[in-house]
Design a protein around this nucleic acid. Structure first.
Length: 294
DNA sequence: CTGCAGGGGTAAA
DNA sequence: TTTACCCCTGCA
């Protein structure tokens, strides 16, 4: 059972199992967290800056109140879920998954803001992670709220739709968004004009949600899945990306060109948990720079 | 130093 | 089903 207490201005979580900063933030689900000089991680979530430090199973939430911990960070870090039980279930299925789960111990699926998740993953299309992170940071700097200086740097919140609509397509191109500028502008405009609050999409079941998300320009099957997992906590959603396509088809002897077969295979075996399986596999595959035949 | 493939895909034909 | 696509980085 985890213990929570205050220590000065900090909030300290002790004996927290299945929680590892590096694996949580490097597994590819988020783009605004970075390592700090003290070995921790810092990032901006919901217009708040947070600096975390981990020593074993003790995690320090710097400058955080108990109330903020409970209201914001507890759901964000998915602390109510029993990851150990899920890992056992996943690992039990195949030696590869056993390795992947062991390697990515401490991964947690973050509950991120749907709006930020949507724009972030539109940017992620046919792009690499360092550049994705850089572009999102530029967006925040140019159009988000200044959160003041934290740990020696000025930080910025992710821009709201009303803030981002200030950017023309050309502005976004000038930031380096490339052909994604059109998608971002189009989506933002649609959301602002129709006064859409993406949080309300939570009410739909996963198939309906997917259908709605696919209506946005720049949101295809892969990006929609990412928004569903990371923005709406739908673990029954499974993004098929280039890594997963290669790895899963090779290891489980499936046709790499048949995403439907691949999804069906995983859906049958890991009902409602495919998203988590994908996260372990993706992280494992990417970090090992696995060479897969074409 | 130049050239070029490739990156957590998507829209359009 | 196939192709072009912004831009940046790494590597011949």
């Amino acid at each position: 059972m985890m213990k929570l207490q205050t220590q000065g201005r900090d909030c300290v979580l002790e004996t927290q199992h299945d929680f590892n900063l590096k694996h949580i933030f490097e597994c590819g689900q988020c783009f605004r967290w970075n390592p700090t000089k003290d070995g921790g991680y810092a990032g901006v979530v919901n217009g708040r800056y947070l600096h975390l430090v981990q020593e074993g199973e003790k995690i320090t939430f710097k400058k955080t109140t108990i109330d903020d911990f409970n209201n914001i960070w507890r759901p964000y870090f998915d602390l109510e879920r029993d990851y150990n039980a899920l890992k056992l279930r996943i690992a039990d299925y195949h030696p590869i998954l056993s390795e992947a789960v062991e390697f990515g111990y401490g991964i947690r699926l973050l509950k991120q803001e749907p709006w930020e998740t949507m724009i972030s993953f539109i940017i992620s299309a046919n792009n690499n992670i360092p550049r994705i992170k850089m572009l999102i940071e530029k967006l925040a700097e140019a159009y988000g709220n200044s959160l003041g200086e934290h740990d020696g740097e000025r930080r910025y919140g992710f821009p709201s739709p009303d803030q981002l609509i200030q950017a023309t397509e050309q502005d976004l191109r000038d930031l380096g968004m490339g052909y994604r500028a059109k998608y971002i502008h189009n989506v933002t405009q649609y959301i602002v004009e129709n006064r859409i609050d993406l949080e309300t999409y939570q009410q739909w079941d996963t198939p309906t949600l997917e259908k709605q998300l696919l209506k946005f320009k720049g949101v295809g099957p892969k990006v929609a899945s990412c928004i569903m997992i990371f923005g709406y906590g739908r673990l029954d959603s499974f993004p098929v990306d280039t890594w997963i396509r290669k790895v899963v088809s090779e290891w489980f002897e499936l046709n790499p060109n048949d995403d439907k077969q691949l999804k069906a295979y995983l859906d049958e075996r890991f009902q409602k948990l495919e998203g988590l399986v994908q996260q372990y596999l993706f992280y494992y595959a990417r970090e090992h720079k696995l060479e897969i035949r074409k």
